[in-house]
Design a binder for these strands. Structure first.
Lengths: 225, 225
DNA sequence: AAAATTTTTAATAATGTGTGAATTTAATTT
DNA sequence: AAATTAAATTCACACATTATTAAAAATTTT
């Protein structure tokens, strides 16, 4: 599963780094920003999955940042507030924060909240069953049925097939596939795609109605007759 | 999973709406009532699964509403009471309240308690015996019958099995299982799930028709042939 | 306090993934 | 049409990740 990317926004550099250490330990990718403006910049540039947003910041406060973000995205946001600060719950809620935490907090609790929020948010990209003749790809059960038989498939192969099959007849370059299936900043070689295509192909054999076709000099597509 | 329906009863409209926002975010369906009488009306009309009940209300107070509800239903009720108000715990308990919260409260604490209460007293409508070949899982008696024999199972293992078996063929990540079976804010490690799966498996041995299957790189599912 | 259950830890086992090099295929040039 | 070049395929193995398990530690229940 592709790790989630989290943007941490706090004017206190130490807090940022502390949080970073914990989140990295949990396998998250972390971006940091120390003020509202650079937060928005990173938010626009990177495809982050969740934002931890401190409220009290010089120049642009957390509420303003949140308001700005909400103009274009429903990305999950957890507000951070120092004990004693008056945190206007209602305001945060109305602006669309998903949760909030009072500093200082237990790292474990932070991680739990992040997981809960991400879990809640993810189903939004409702995955659906894809069907063609002799082929059913069901992301709920993670099963591929080919000519009535269950085909076991490791996650990467499944994701690749699922992605291609959900966009039939559209060609993707290897780089596009790496981006879509492997993740936004996957550093690896594009040969990797070839190998996975091969593995999917040998599990799905030749077929009349559809196949993963090579578009020479360009990439691959899931072609349907 | 079918979302639970919650009735929020408070004479303060703002509080009602605040709670509504939070609960909707958690995926609950929310009904609101601002006095005892309309609360009872909704309670009778809709099949709600849990009631949040403010005590101090004009006309008919929370105790009276609870008393009325208890004449015909064991539905879980969480009492709400403002700080400073004299709240008679004993009375609330005697009348059969399941829990109570003092306002102002942390929304996430409210959610945690709701989940806890619902897990304990799953509404009768949703609580059902699950049956497969050679397997009966009865949530009323907390008993698992496997090939005609009673299988003793500690609560966590039972809950895990029950959850998986009530959603056959659907894969859940470890995090999802922690969220669904362990609870909203469980901070623990996801290896915990593995261990429980192992224990359930060794009690239920190999079986042709169904099994708890590992979906490599993803999670677990209760697979049925 | 003892027993039962749950959680954590850590070592081991199982499985999946990515890479370079060799090979094959396709397009282009001569 | 043969030779050349570029791209795609394939292989196999090292490496990485994930799952399983046993056992110890912590917690809860009795």
């Amino acid at each position: 599963m592709v790790e989630s990317k989290i943007l941490v926004v706090d004017d206190d550099i130490n807090i940022c780094e502390l949080i970073e250490v914990y989140l990295m330990k949990e396998g998250y990718k972390v971006y940091k920003a120390n003020d509202g403006e650079s937060a928005l910049k990173i938010f626009k540039e990177k495809q982050v999955d969740l934002i931890l947003l401190d409220i009290m910041m010089p120049k642009m406060d957390g509420y303003s940042v949140l308001k700005e973000i909400r103009r274009e995205s429903q990305i999950p946001v957890i507000m951070l507030t120092a004990k004693g600060e008056t945190f206007d719950k209602v305001l945060g809620l109305e602006l669309g924060a998903d949760d909030y935490m009072v500093k200082p907090f237990e790292p474990k609790e932070l991680v739990a909240r992040i997981r809960a929020v991400l879990r809640r948010y993810k189903p939004l990209s409702q995955k659906r069953v894809i069907e063609y003749t002799d082929l059913v790809i069901d992301p709920d059960s993670y099963i591929v049925m080919y000519k009535g038989n269950k085909i076991e498939m490791p996650p990467k192969e499944f994701d690749l097939l699922y992605f291609l099959a959900s966009n039939p007849n559209k060609v993707y370059t290897r780089d596009q596939l790496l981006y879509e299936v492997w993740g936004y900043d996957y550093p690896g070689d594009s040969r990797t795609v070839d190998v996975h295509v091969k593995r999917v192909r040998e599990k799905l054999m030749e077929n009349e109605e559809w196949q993963i076709k090579t578009v020479w000099g360009v990439g691959y597509k899931f072609e349907v007759k």
